[in-house]
Design a binder for these strands. Structure first.
Length: 643
RNA sequence: GCCACCCUAGCUCAGAUGGUAGAGCAGCCGAUUCGUAAUCGGCAGGUCGAGGGUUCGAAUCCCUUGGGUGGCUCCA
């Protein structure tokens, strides 16, 4: 190494000496990297930088291509800049704010008096295309903070000024492409021509700095990919998501509906009720196995109870209130206080613990209009909720057993990818610091001991205690929260709960709030979208549909239906005077798992000709062996059947 | 709650610039009696989410309101 030279290397080991200040792109060329032209950035150590960055010290370099995760981020970030560039060109009076990369694309927030219309979006996208085809070079420069503030102030970009004022460093970096300059950490593509596959997807309101007390900005969402083909695939995926939308399937499969008379409160139709109740039946089976006792508790309780539990203090804005006998009452948003009353009904011994009280009670929570959505966020629902009252030394075993129930259940439904989060103390909460500390440590230890990978979500705990949230990825790779385990030392305190321990002394139990599916409504929505309406046999509202070829077979068909029903199957007959193909098509569209075709031959031979959803015809068989062949699969909680 | 958009027959959707509603599917009736994803014909169905306004005239323009959708905030 010489004074004016530095040593650069590729991860493969190739080395070269170049002059200090050589750009990353030139250094890569000097190293014999052939695909420099395809790279959009460079990785120096752990940092992704512009290709035009001058190298000042020895470094190991790796080109960043658009199809790598880092490259995709650069591409999308630059697309956000291209969007801002186009907006400033079309609407010069607009102020720019921030434009980050998000999971499936990017967005940019703007301040403009006029709202952006869908037509504006088209014009903006067209302008983005023009700017891309002009292949404008993107350059970076650094500037003193004060200088940058002055510059953006002069440009009338007050939000940028505010952002820079919040940056502690002396210098900030600016990126310029043609007549557009933006404050940005970078890195960016070398020129706008590298952006070939992007699309603006929607406009939405968004608060400045994500605070609802601040003014509202206009956010434009978009997405970008390395190639047009990948963009197209992504858009096709969005179409598929639309096709699987549970609101749509709910209507098409006649499962549930919504009515303005009870906003955000689902009405389950007979078929939807079967799915719902079968899910509950599955959970009840688990409860039998894991030692839970089911209870039923009132819908409306005295406000005093909610004051005592802390809900009135912390949760009032989400509760419904009413009055009776001049007493203030509240509709329950949760079951826990009722379970505390149940626990306290009589002396408890350590021999009674753990006491696991399960409750499928209907809950009502007032959700602000605008946050509700289909079955995933409703105002009326029930959970597979339970509260475990146990001695402190039992916490570990109890949490462990809940985790087992959760994992087994998610496996059953084909949710094999999970993400687990530990939520710690939120701002609004009850209980002292030491108790919180203890509870958080307990949960952390259980997870660690079980070798379960998790992430910490600071401040995401419940107001009464820390929690572990169990999320899954569905078939569309979207993340949903389902189960939860929450430790609670506060409610036992507030309700002055105790049990008599081995020493004959009163001791405070711990309460564990937990759910596997979470809200049944929400779970049903997620499952419906996950399996695109193709429920496993045991959950299907109609398991078997008989289809007659002509009306000569009606009597036999009805007889078969009766036999199937007698053996516990949900069966029905389609006796309509329609062609076979028509009736089969309808059964397929209705996602009926098994169709039994009954024609002249079947009547004569006293058999049925089965047909599996999506798989076509199977050989005919006699009725008893057909029933035997599906018996296991039709039992609640039968494995398989979900992708 | 905030921003934007949407609401026409049970469903999916047509109905530039204001002249008072239309299709396919579903439904009903009839014909057809048929072998693994749509048989043919006919009939009926809407105070265009609701209320108010502008206008000679409103599904269409304006205001209010209800519901929904996509986001933001929230999800204890």
């Amino acid at each position: 190494m010489t004074d004016d030279g530095i040593r650069v290397a590729l991860p493969s080991g190739a080395e070269a000496f170049v002059a200090r200040g050589t750009t990353a792109a030139d250094a890569l060329r000097a190293l014999g990297e052939r695909r420099v032209g395809e790279a959009i950035a460079v990785k120096v150590g752990d940092h992704v930088l512009d290709l035009s960055r001058g190298l000042v010290a020895d470094a190991t370099l790796a080109p960043v291509f658009p199809d790598s995760p880092e490259g995709l981020d650069v591409l999308r970030h630059s697309s956000a800049h291209l969007l801002a560039h186009a907006v400033k060109r079309l609407f010069p009076n607009t102020q720019v704010t921030i434009g980050p990369v998000i999971e499936s694309g990017f967005y940019y927030d703007f301040k403009r008096a006029q709202p952006f219309t869908p037509e504006d979006l088209e014009r903006i996208e067209a302008t983005m295309r023009e700017l891309a085809s002009e292949n404008i070079p993107v350059s970076r420069r650094e500037m003193r903070r004060a200088e940058a503030i002055a510059l953006f102030r002069e440009m009338g970009e007050h939000y940028k000024v505010e952002i820079i004022e919040g940056i502690p460093e002396d210098h900030v970096s600016l990126y310029t492409q043609g007549d557009f300059t933006d404050l940005c950490r970078g890195p960016h593509v070398p020129s706008t021509g590298r952006l070939r596959a992007f699309k603006l997807t929607s406009v939405a309101g968004a608060y400045w700095r994500g605070d609802e007390r601040n003014e509202m900005l206009q956010r434009i969402y978009g997405t970008a990919f390395p190639t047009p083909k990948q963009l197209k695939e992504h858009l096709a995926l969005l179409e598929e998501a639309k096709r699987r939308d549970h609101r749509r399937l709910g209507r098409e499969l006649d499962l549930f509906s919504f009515h303005p008379e009870a906003p955000a409160s689902p009405f389950f139709h007979p078929k939807g009720a079967i799915v719902y109740n079968t899910l509950v039946a599955y959970i009840r089976d688990l409860y039998r196995e894991f030692g839970y006792d089911e209870v039923l508790t009132p819908q409306i309780l005295d406000v005093e109870l909610w004051k005592r539990s802390g809900h009135y203090e912390n949760y009032r804005e989400n509760m419904y209130f009413t009055e009776a006998d001049e007493r203030q009452m509240a509709v329950k948003p949760m079951n826990c206080p009722s379970h505390c009353l149940l626990y306290a009904d009589g002396k408890r011994s350590y021999r009674d613990l753990p006491l696991r009280l399960a409750d499928f009670g209907r809950l009502h929570r007032y959700e602000r209009s605008g946050v509700t959505a289909g079955l995933t966020r409703v105002r009326s629902f029930s959970q597979d909720d339970a509260h475990i009252f146990c001695a402190p030394e039992q916490i570990d075993a109890e949490v462990t057993s809940v985790v087992e129930m959760i994992f087994r259940t998610y496996d059953l439904f084909g949710f094999s990818e999970r993400r687990i989060y530990l939520g710690t103390r939120p701002e609004r909460s009850i209980g002292d610091a030491a108790t919180w500390e203890r509870a958080e440590r307990t949960l952390r230890e259980v997870l660690k001991r079980r070798g379960i990978a998790f992430e910490v979500h600071p401040g995401e705990g419940a107001f009464y205690g820390p929690k572990i949230d169990f999320c899954i990825l569905d078939a569309m790779r979207r993340e949903w929260q389902l189960g939860t385990v929450q430790l609670d030392f506060s409610l036992p305190e507030r309700f002055d709960l105790h049990f008599i321990n081995r020493e004959g002394k009163e001791e405070r139990p711990v309460m564990i709030h937990r759910a596997l599916l979470g809200s049944i409504e929400r779970f049903m929505a997620i499952l419906l979208e996950h399996c695109a309406g193709d429920f496993p046999l045991w959950l299907a509202p109609v398991q078997v549909r008989l289809i007659t070829v002509t009306d000569q077979q009606q009597a036999y068909a009805q007889q078969v239906v009766a036999t199937l029903r007698a053996s516990g199957l949900r069966a029905e007959a389609d006796l309509r005077n329609e062609k076979l193909g028509y009736k089969i098509r309808e059964a397929e569209l209705q996602k009926v798992p098994i169709v039994l075709v009954i024609g002249e031959k079947e009547v004569a031979a006293q058999t049925v000709a089965p047909r599996r959803r999506g798989a076509g015809a199977l050989p005919a068989s006699d009725l008893p062996s057909f029933i035997a062949s599906i018996a296991t699969e039709a039992r609640p909680g039968a494995p398989g059947g979900v992708p």
